[in-house]
Design a protein around this nucleic acid. Structure first.
Length: 480
RNA sequence: GGCGCGGUACCCAAGUGGUAAGGGAACUGUCUGCAAAACAGUCAUUCGGCGGUUCAAAUCCGCCCCGCGCCUCCA
């Protein structure tokens, strides 16, 4: 089965055929680094990380570009807040200080979530020259007009306007919420270049000192790193309008290469109590806070248990449930490792129960799910079906070294495609020797039927967060 | 006002024409000195409501009810 993706441009599920049969080029809108990385960011970049990983898994080379919008009103505003430490710095330096700090913490969060680094992370401020050239081109070919030291894109000149967001110009003109700016010819026209006010960071341009508007950077930087046309453009659902619509307009107006982007993919929001997470509602969760309470892989699993295009409702209860689900996977890995050690080398094998065909069933089902527009929720269900299969076989003592190794390899392969690491981080911080010692003391007690003492030891270990399990192969332990 | 998304068990969530995946919770049983885990079984005759199309509908069509998002910065 071939990979199919839901294209927001056509509103259809389409077969994925990249422009170059070996190489996929994708651009995902990055963050404006002026504040903490939040759950919504995590959702978006986990989603596109899995898309990227799956494309690589099925054999493509992937060029993945993600920008940083490191110049913007919110950053400037933040830089104006009094900070004694940066008293003597220029506004430009202050902005850089803010963005660098947030980019660092962004990468820290992304690393914890096991998100692979993009091929390149271009910054808007490092591409001003290219943007100025681009805007100059739009002025020259009549799509942009100059008012004082601002430059605007004239939306009505671009006949495809609205094709991504499925809006018609006429309808939007009558829309109540479009802000009126008398300087613009039409309310929907958007700014390509903003003339600088006193004290704002600025760069030279043919129209005077100023800075680029929001949308232009993505067109310019994607063109620079991926070429005039490429395969996938991604981002949050809220970017469809106006951001992505404007990007299409200014890009296709300049290059006349249509379509600019073949597949548009957007991720759904994170909701709190069925409402969009937002600062104004005060229902905002920073990743720093969540990571203090839950392992990163639990968050990753939680985000992937809902399809990327659907909204996802966040709550601590949901995360607790996901923790239990994740522990089920981890426990199976630990059980396999425990048995591999106990069962020993292949010469001891009595029977080999698992066959390649049996495993292929799970492999195929998993791939079919992923081929269907990256249906991670369905793919995860296959992982749990596989875990059930493994436990069933372990239970029936139909275990042998080769099978166990194969189970483990497939489990890691499937989880790996989803970027799910199967490590119990906490185990590494524990004094294993001490625990083993107590376990053998308990075993002695059990042998002479001193169950009170045995239970006392078990209780003691539980207080330290260690759970004991007695099996036919001896006692196992694990962290809560 | 315009455009769009969704309503599947106690909770979460897959499923776009062939008779309801998966996870969590709960209950029963097996195993165990007791546990834990695992396994076995139970948990939606039904998919917001009402009509229609069809041999067949959660899936297609119509109407209605409810929730949400975008149209302003946003992942």
């Amino acid at each position: 089965m071939a990979l199919k993706v839901y294209n927001d441009l056509s509103s259809l599920l389409e077969e994925f055929i990249p422009i170059n049969p070996q190489k996929v080029k994708m651009y995902v809108c990055g963050i404006t680094p002026y504040d903490e990385t939040h759950l919504g960011h995590a959702r978006a970049y986990v989603a596109f990380d899995v898309i990227r990983r799956y494309l690589e898994y099925i054999g493509y080379e992937v060029d993945y570009v993600q920008n940083f919008t490191d110049i913007d009103d919110k950053i400037i505003k933040k830089s104006e807040i009094q900070n004694p430490k940066s008293e003597n710095k220029t506004i430009q330096e202050k902005c850089k200080e803010i963005t660098e700090k947030h980019i660092d913490s962004y990468f820290d969060v992304m690393d914890q979530l096991n998100i692979k680094r993009a091929t390149v992370y271009p910054k808007a401020t490092e591409h001003i020259k290219e943007m100025v050239n681009w805007i100059r081109g739009l002025v020259k070919n009549g799509y942009a007009y100059i008012v004082d030291s601002d430059v605007y894109f004239e939306v009505s000149k671009f006949k495809g306007y609205g094709k991504l967001s499925k809006r018609r110009l006429k309808e939007m003109k009558s829309g109540a919420r479009v802000g009126i700016d008398s300087r613009k010819k039409e309310p929907l026209d958007f700014v390509l270049w903003k003339g600088a006010k006193e004290g704002e960071p600025s760069w030279d341009s043919p129209w005077g000192k100023g800075r680029p508007g929001w949308h232009i950077e993505c067109s310019v930087m994607s063109e620079k790193y991926l070429g005039e046309q490429f395969d996938i453009h991604g981002g949050g659902l809220d970017l469809i309008f106006p951001h992505h619509e404007n990007e299409i307009a200014q890009t296709e107006a300049l290059t006349n290469k249509i379509p600019w982007v073949k597949y548009w993919l957007h991720n759904g929001f994170v909701n709190i109590n069925s409402q969009k997470m937002s600062k104004s509602l005060g229902n905002f969760f920073s990743m720093k806070d969540i990571l203090a309470k839950y392992p990163a892989m639990v968050i990753r699993l939680f985000l992937l248990m809902t399809h990327y295009h659907s909204p996802i409702n966040f709550s601590n209860e949901q995360l607790d449930e996901t923790k239990a689900a994740y522990d089920r996977i981890i426990k199976t890995v630990q059980d396999i490792d425990f048995l591999i050690e106990k069962v020993g080398e292949p010469e001891n094998d009595v029977e080999r129960k698992v066959t390649e065909d049996e495993l292929a069933v799970f492999n195929d089902k998993f791939k079919s799910a992923m081929d269907d527009n990256f249906n991670t929720a369905a793919a995860i269900s296959v992982i749990f079906e596989f875990i059930h299969f493994i436990n069933e076989h372990i239970k029936n003592s139909k275990i042998d070294y080769i099978s166990l190794k194969k189970y483990k390899a497939l489990l890691f392969e499937l989880c790996g495609i989803l970027g799910l690491l199967l490590v119990n981080e906490k185990t590494q911080e524990i004094d294993a020797e001490d625990i083993e010692k107590l376990i053998s003391e308990r075993d002695q007690a059990r042998k002479i039927k001193e169950f009170a003492l045995a239970d006392e030891i078990r209780k003691m270990l539980l207080a330290r967060g260690i759970i004991l399990e007695d099996t036919a192969y001896g006692t196992k332990w694990r962290k809560v």
